[in-house]
């Protein structure tokens, strides 16, 4: 187990606090999802149901099953997973795939990249679920980690991902990734790619 010291923003004070990025999602992380994340998400879903809203209006990703995702890739070198913990609680999860996709942006077309299979932050960090989020910066840390994995594989920071509709602004504006439009081959989600130049700009 490798652990990296990182930061998250404590939304109560606005100040960075020490956090830990751990390589490989553990059984304890999966239990955190089931016993700590789910009740928060479910409470929100109950509130939305009480207002008569259907699953289409529920917070995106509510049905993701991290246990199944992690079980499906157990022992495969092509996948790397990360858990972000702060103040004893699981704050975010990410799954990377280094053998799935090749670049689509013309200047690096055909070269390999690290594909981000999944990124999720804890429900108490999402304004879609709670009124006052607890920690910020999970996306920033995860994308930086994905870039470093890409560099580790000599892929020069090239990464690609399909954003959920509500997160497009983050990948386009904050990460500065290239927007390659809605992808008909992948549930109509918008595909974003980061070139090595963009990766240098983001991590610099």
């Amino acid at each position: 187990m490798t652990s990296y010291p990182v930061f998250l923003t404590d939304k109560r004070t606005g100040e960075p606090v020490a956090a830990e990025l751990i390589e490989t999602i553990s059984e304890a992380d999966l239990r955190s999802v089931e016993t700590e994340w789910k009740p928060v998400t479910n409470a929100k879903i109950r509130a939305l149901m009480a207002k008569g809203l259907s699953p289409a209006d529920w917070p995106e990703g509510w049905h993701w099953k991290w246990r199944d995702k992690v079980t499906a890739i157990n022992g495969l070198l092509a996948f790397r997973t990360f858990a972000l913990r702060c103040e004893g609680k699981l704050q975010g999860l990410m799954q990377l795939n280094t053998a799935r996709a090749r670049c689509r942006v013309p200047e690096q077309a055909g070269k390999d990249l690290v594909y981000v299979d999944y990124i999720e932050t804890a429900p108490w960090n999402r304004t879609a679920i709670v009124d006052t989020p607890r920690f910020g910066g999970v996306g920033t840390i995860m994308i930086r980690a994905a870039i470093e994995v890409s560099r580790d594989h000599e892929l020069r920071g090239r990464i690609g991902l399909h954003s959920l509709p509500s997160a497009e602004a983050f990948y386009a504006n904050v990460c500065g990734m290239t927007d390659l439009g809605l992808d008909g081959t992948y549930e109509g989600l918008r595909y974003f790619e980061m070139t090595s130049v963009q990766a240098d700009a983001f991590s610099g």
Partner: peptide, 11 residues
């Protein structure tokens, strides 16, 4: 990043 949503992956 602020309060932006960050989820990525299969919907």
């Amino acid at each position: 990043e602020g309060d932006l949503e960050i989820s990525a992956g299969r919907l």
